[in-house]
Amino acid sequence: MEAQFIKRFHYCLILLFWVSISFSQVSEDMVTIGAGSYVPLYGTADKKPVYIKSFLLDVYPVTNQEYLEFLKTNSAYRKSKIKRLFANTTYLYEWSGDLSFGNLNSNAPVTNVSWFAAKEYCECQGKRLPTLDEWEYVAMADEKRKDARTREEFNKYILSWYEKNKTYNNSVGKTFKNYWGVYDMHGLVWEWTFDFNSIFLSGESRKDKDTDKDLFCGSGSVNATDLMNYAAFMRYAFRGSIKANYTTKNLGFRCAKNISN
């Protein structure tokens, strides 16, 4: 009788252990980003705020090791197999083979990945790429505030990182943890967003052109708002300059997910 009870108890423990593993996996990988609204630098016709619905976001960018796991089951995305339509010739440039990231740090963000590859990776995990508006919404938080965009030190931090080289081979999770519990939005690599190709910095959109002009030809004094705009402008300009099959060594990604009701 007692033996059977102990046996049952053991099964329960095992089950509990297993359940807790699967649950902790979710909670460690992703955090909930609360709903809110903000006015992005670009995008709305009349500078009205955009509304962001609550969603889940990866705490860290996807690492080389994680990407390697993905390639094991998705051979079409290996370095030697990927179609040129989906990634240019510098795809996984520093990887030494189809299933080896060479001298790169296993815990560093995977870079030299195209938008198509990033999108496929996320879809394979039952996730998606964050939208540009979602990404920027999370990226405006510092350690304590949801929106630190007007804080001078925050902008200086971001801009000083833009001038640094080779942060792409650092491990994830070494920069600051922001208000939402997300790491590495600034200070490690730039990241793909689902609708990166929604930027107009030149060409057809007159309004955006005027904004650029204001940025460059504005008055001589640099205040916090200018810095904030400049930092965001750099990201938007970068996104506006890339194509979906482009890959560069300082561009990685992380995944997002809708909150199911």
Binding site: T44, A45, D46, D195, S198, F200, S205, A244
Partner: peptide, 22 residues
Amino acid sequence: REFAAVLAVNYKKISPIDFSHS
């Protein structure tokens, strides 16, 4: 969105009825 990415066409919904696009 994916098809636009292949064509290198950029677009964005800028109001309920309007888009800017390449």
